[in-house]
Write a protein that binds this DNA or RNA. Sequence first.
RNA 1: GCACCCGUAGCUCAGCUGGAUAGAGCGUUUGCUUGCGGAGCAAAAGGUCGCACGUUCAAAUCGUGUCGGGUGUACCA
Length: 545
Amino acid sequence: MQEIAEKLKIAIKDLYGLDFNPEITSAPDNLDADYSSNAPLKLAKELHKPPMQIAEELNQKLNANISHPGFLNFALSDDYLWKSINDLCKNFDDSIRMNEYDGKTIVAEFSDPNPFKILHAGHFYTSIMGDALSRLYESAGAKVIRANFGGDVGLHVAKTIYILLQKKLDTFTIEDMGKCYVEGTIAYDDDEEAHQKITELNKQIYQINNEDIHGTPLSDLYWKGRELSYEYFKDFYASIGVKFDKYYPESSVANLGLETVKKELKKGVYEYSDGAVVFKGERFGLHTRVFINKEGVPTYEAKDVGLIFQKDKDYHFDKSVVITGSEQLDYMKVVLKSVEQYAPDLVAKTTHLTHGLVKLPGNVKMSSRKGNFLKAVDVINLVKTALKEAYNSTDEKVSLAAIKYAFLKYKMGGDIIFDPNESVKMTGNSGPYLLYSCVRAKKILASIKSKGTADEISDTTIHEKNLIKKVLEYKGILQEAIVEMAPHKLANYLYELAQEFSRFYENCPVAGSNKEQRRAKIVQAYLDTMIHGLNILGIDIPEEM
RNA sequence: GCACCCGUAGCUCAGCUGGAUAGAGCGUUUGCUUGCGGAGCAAAAGGUCGCACGUUCAAAUCGUGUCGGGUGUACCA
């Protein structure tokens, strides 16, 4: 496909002297061709010639077919396909290797859970998505720093600790803290006395953190709770196979953010308004946000400013990707626009991606205030139960693959519906389907004993051809997924590839057939591709299912 | 009010830098079945791509308007 594009590009250059990047797509089924290009149609306006004439002129150098109103259609020869699959098998990793990001450092920030609270399904989702994106960049040669950012001080901490103090628990678990947070939120909203106490507690906690106070009952509780949260996060990430390189507690960047904003305040980027320090985004089509509140305390905005600079100090990144919930889209625009005024290079290197909510089907209303939101652990348990009921399996690789694939197959941005009762069925467009096809491919290869010479060249069947073509598309898909920062493109391709393999499997016996060696090559190329692609999605393939 | 995102088959979603007959999965109907592990394959039914107008040889895709849903919009994170 890339070779066709290259040939076409050269023909256009030779004939018309234009640098034009032609688009190559799969040809329609009713044509006796494999790939098509609409280049003549695109060029018609610029060249002031009818598209059909351009197609004919180009085709004198190309050996393609022409169809109305000006498409070029290319057919691949069987020899070309078999040669390609042979080359791919000889050295798979080198053939699909990309080097766009060789020597580059990328900081990817995602997940961002708050200590003293429970991980919810959204944390799970962004962890999987962020990790897949990181692996995509790594596949193109980048060194990726997976960073995590969370509020170790703030109102949510005070709410939790307020209830913990009331209950006077000697020991407590992360679940206890989750319940305390829910109770604390209700008390804060409904009880005037509690509201004041929590506000006071918040200031004390801020001081404990800022001055690193130890040895008081309150500070002991705070440090113990924070440590418990960090252990809980670590265990969870380990269980889903995601590893962070750096955790930035919010408190660690607050001062840097505060200083930076104060410095730029003097230069006029930020300004005073009602006693607070704000950035007026209106002149950029955005809105005004507070960076330092009237009590002189840095808000989340200032902390994010500090974080941008801290990341650059720590890693001198070439690119920074931040993934958050979509509700932070406009917020982040304001923060980045303000930083752009004094550090445009940093902002130019930064990309903000957003994702939607993980929802249950049937429009179930969930309220984090009442604590009945979908927790990360709920997702795991629901899938484990479904797997057990459907296939009497307790294979954690399979259940984790089911979840990861379910998350990754959707385009990032909108809400996703996670259906614990039906969508998690292990048929169709699902992780287990992909795994199963890999296990089958492995079995085929294991059953082939002879390493004899190549089979005699005979006809190529449609199923052989389709599978080879699909495998050869892999590298292009990888590049597309990276450029568009879209793991779902890879996920959906792998599903289509597995479907093509299943058709091949149904129609083309391998072991013992007179085309055993040639077909084994296709299976090998298929399996190599699946292993590579699934690895990028963070999905492990079990030996047996 | 203003800004941004979304609206594609009964359901869940791809496709959107304009291209040929709009694709998958689930569900429904039918066929294949002692297989290199059927968690599969083949086939059928199911669509005025929210609506209207516009740009173009060509619009699900671009523009304007409109309806419906979501999010954000000053001292929370």
